[in-house]
Design a protein around this nucleic acid. Structure first.
Lengths: 365, 365
DNA sequence: AATCGATGTGAGTCCGGTCTCAATCCTAGG
DNA sequence: CCTAGGATTGAGACCGGACTCACATCGATT
């Protein structure tokens, strides 16, 4: 309909050069605008390009500049708003510096992650941002490192891998939050997370996720500080889909030794925990207190609104991208600073005192 | 530390060939495993490749196969779980067929979208999935079409552009939902959306989003069917950030002619609407009823749980990717079917009868 | 008028693969 | 023993830009 039925092969510099009656080299210079080109030639070339609908082939360009202007991002699950927001921080920053993002989802599976990293390397991305599924098995990340390609970690650190990592200090915030619960009178504090482990949790056992280890360590310290010890039976890992989380929650809340407070390791978990609590006919916070990681908008809408641990997720993405791009573009050192990326406990309404605390403290006094 | 300090330039077929003492062509054949290669050569080449840590340069490969095994995805906002989930559907499907995804965010801005499409075309992606910010200004999409690159639309249709589009039938579900509200006694039904318009809404005015037009049309029809007419003053577009949505909500709920029900055009809007309602001290559904588009998990946790319009978002992404890949790989026709992609009204607790309905109907009888 | 440095310009190489084509090997049929 | 035809193999073109290098131009110097 329109005009030149542009089927098949697309226009190349050579075509433009021919049309503009100049050499390929000159056309390339005018188009790529580098080198010296006379006004006359430039105009003719640009006009020809316009007329032919020339579009540079970035693949070819990348091939001999060695730069693809693309960064690879490997996350566990974009469906999770946590990563959605982080990704947003990354893409926004990347775009600002002229980079595009290839996104790969791993479903938190190591095999998928190894694969993803490989693919991105093969595609010659300029750098990688990875939220490692495992903080322990990091051979593939070491390879990236050794290959000399810029790499930056998000959310979780990788053991024995000296790479810039953008994550909040989980130990501290976990400690604070636990302290807060303890001060409210809680002793039976549960922790629910998705990390997978072989058997049930044993204090200090190595975990795949540095994040979770740090959080557990924070909890332990908080108890210790008070001369108490953390109720290990309430640490529940391997929480998978909604059903399993609900099952775990019901289990935590039953019996004479039930948990009086639950710390949900992320928003998805909290969702199911709250659902299970509601279904059990219990109420928050009078029967159970709850703290969840990540501050999503909906947490203000539940009754009561949830007390959460807010992480600067967008900023983390932004910082990671900024650092990566800095690495890609040269100077190693310079400002390693940036804002500190601190998590914060946002006290809303889901934490109260456990039912029998009054009785206990009276009895104690 | 490890061994061969693989700095700089990476290993190429030529290097492998030299190491294996065969010609570049033979090495390439063995590696790319095409053509005829003797067992002996194959083994030597593979061993050499292994030893050298050879990794094919996908860029180079793409350049002369003309295939990048990459599809471009352009969405308005990955931070929005709607797109997060759709993207998940796309990436899962793509991965299954060996494709990677380059994701670009447009913030729902047309300029950014035009740019995004251009960039992806320049990167020679094999195909595009776009959730067009505007259903009207679609010149850039027509260009994609004309360039011969496979294109598929997600979520919204584009006017006068004959491209496979994966979206639910908004007219029908909107009609049904409105009917449901009307039957509950509502007459003052508001509709809040982010679409931008020049001035205030006027019946039938052209909108950027086909989705929204369809929804409004559905509402109109539902009213018409009952011999009523839609309260145009309650259609509020241009709802931007949280603040503006809350302002709009407060405005809708004040005065003698306040809205008794609100339809929120997406989850983000609903979030602020609910917040504004709660802040006003009103309650759902006794004071105001609410329906929102998209069924997010948290909608089950509010008090009351929200009545929502569930869309098969993941499936839409999956269908779009499947169709795109089919287009990329050949056969035009075949099964244009796939599951129907229908939206469904999920009745939970946020719709009730308006306060004065009793009075009114009594007065009426 | 001869010289010099700053442009302009075209031919051709290179990036790292894929692929064509002609030459060489090998083996079975005659 | 000779030969046709398939299996192997190497040289080199090619994809579409970026970039090197040698050469041509030209106004300005002295």
């Amino acid at each position: 309909m329109s005009s030149e039925g542009s089927r098949r092969r697309d226009v190349t510099v050579a075509d433009v050069a021919k049309a503009a009656q100049v050499s390929k080299a000159q056309a390339a210079r005018a188009l790529g605008n580098y080198g010296a080109v006379s006004e006359d030639v430039r105009e003719r070339v640009l006009a020809a390009a316009e007329g032919l609908g020339y579009r540079p082939n970035e693949l070819a360009r990348s091939m001999n500049t060695g730069k693809s202007n693309t960064i690879g991002v490997v996350v566990g699950d974009i469906e999770n708003p946590h990563f959605g927001l982080a990704t947003r921080g990354i893409t926004d920053t990347a775009k600002k510096s002229g980079y595009n993002v290839i996104l790969i989802n791993t479903d938190e599976e190591r095999a998928a992650e190894v694969d993803a990293v490989q693919v991105l390397l093969d595609k010659r991305v300029d750098g990688l941002i990875v939220a490692p599924a495992s903080s322990v098995e990091t051979a593939h990340l070491k390879e990236v490192r050794d290959s000399g390609r810029p790499l930056v970690l998000l959310d979780r650190a990788a053991e024995g891998l000296d790479v810039e990592t953008f994550a909040v200090d989980m130990g501290t915030i976990s400690y604070e939050s636990t302290k807060y619960l303890i001060e409210a009178g809680h002793r039976r504090i549960a922790f629910v997370s998705t990390v997978r482990t072989e058997g049930p949790y044993v204090a200090g056992m190595p975990l795949d996720s540095s994040q979770i280890s740090d959080r557990l360590e924070g909890i332990r310290r908080a108890f210790e500080d008070e001369g108490l010890s953390q109720p290990m039976d309430l640490v529940r890992l391997n929480a998978g889909d909604a059903d399993s989380i609900m099952r775990i929650t019901r289990d935590l809340l039953k019996g004479p030794d039930a948990a009086t407070a639950i710390i949900a390791s992320d928003g998805l978990i909290a969702l199911s925990v709250v659902e299970a609590i509601q279904e059990s006919g219990l109420s928050i916070p009078s029967d159970v207190s709850l703290i969840m990681y990540d501050d999503f908008a909906w947490t203000r809408l539940t009754t009561p609104p949830l007390t959460v641990i807010a992480q600067p997720v967008y900023d983390m993405g932004m910082a990671a991208a900024t650092a990566l791009i800095r690495q890609i573009e040269g100077r190693k050192s310079s400002s390693p600073a940036g804002p500190p990326l601190e998590a914060r406990l946002v006290r809303r309404g889901s934490v109260g005192s456990p039912k029998d605390v009054g009785v206990l403290s009276q009895a104690g006094s």
